[in-house]
Amino acid sequence: MAIATRTDDTQNRWRLPNGFRVKIFAYALVAPVVLLILGLVAYPFLFAIYVSFTDQVVGSVGNFIGFKNFEYLAGTATFWSAIWNTIVLVLVSDALKLFIGLGLALLVHQNLPGRGLFRSFLMLPWAMPAFVAFLIWRVLYQPIGGGINLILTQTGLYPQVIDWLGQRSTAMGSVIVASVWRGFPFWFVSILAALQSVPKELHEAAVVDGANIWQRFWTVTVPGILPVVIITMVLSSIWTANAFEHVWLLTAGGPSDATMVFPVLAYFGMQTQRIGEAAAVSVYMLPVLAILVLFATSLMMRKED
Rank of each mutant, 00 (worst) to 15 (best):
L165C: 13
G166V: 08
Q167C: 05
Q167H: 06
R168H: 13
S169Y: 00
S169K: 08
S169Q: 13
M172Q: 11
M172I: 13
I176P: 01
I176G: 05
V177D: 00
V177Y: 01
A178D: 01
S179W: 10
S179T: 15
V180D: 04
V180L: 07
V180I: 01
R182N: 11
G183R: 07
F184Q: 03
P185E: 04
W187F: 05
W187I: 03
F188V: 08
V189E: 08
V189K: 10
S190A: 01
S190W: 00
L195K: 00
L195A: 06
Q196R: 15
Q196G: 13
P199A: 09
P199K: 08
K200P: 07
K200F: 02
E201G: 07
E201R: 13
L202R: 12
L202M: 15
H203D: 14
H203F: 14
E204Q: 14
E204W: 12
A205S: 11
A205M: 10
A205Y: 02
A206H: 09
A206T: 06
A206D: 03
A206N: 12
A206E: 00
A206C: 07
V207H: 10
V208A: 00
V208W: 00
D209K: 03
A211N: 02
A211C: 13
A211W: 03
A211P: 04
N212M: 04
I213W: 14
I213Q: 12
W214K: 10
Q215A: 15
R216A: 00
F217C: 06
F217S: 04
F217T: 01
W218V: 14
T219A: 09
T219L: 08
T219N: 09
V220T: 06
V222A: 12
P223V: 12
P223Y: 12
G224I: 01
G224H: 03
I225A: 07
I225L: 02
L226M: 14
L226G: 11
L226H: 14
V229I: 15
V229W: 11
I230G: 01
I230T: 11
I230W: 08
T232H: 05
T232P: 06
V234G: 09
L235W: 01
L235H: 01
L235Y: 02
L235N: 03
S237I: 11
S237L: 04
S237N: 04
I238G: 07
W239I: 08
W239K: 10
T240E: 03
A241D: 03
N242D: 13
N242M: 13
A243Y: 00
A243D: 11
A243H: 03
F244L: 15
F244M: 11
F244A: 12
E245V: 02
H246L: 04
V247P: 09
W248N: 07
W248C: 05
W248S: 08
L249K: 09
L249T: 14
T251D: 14
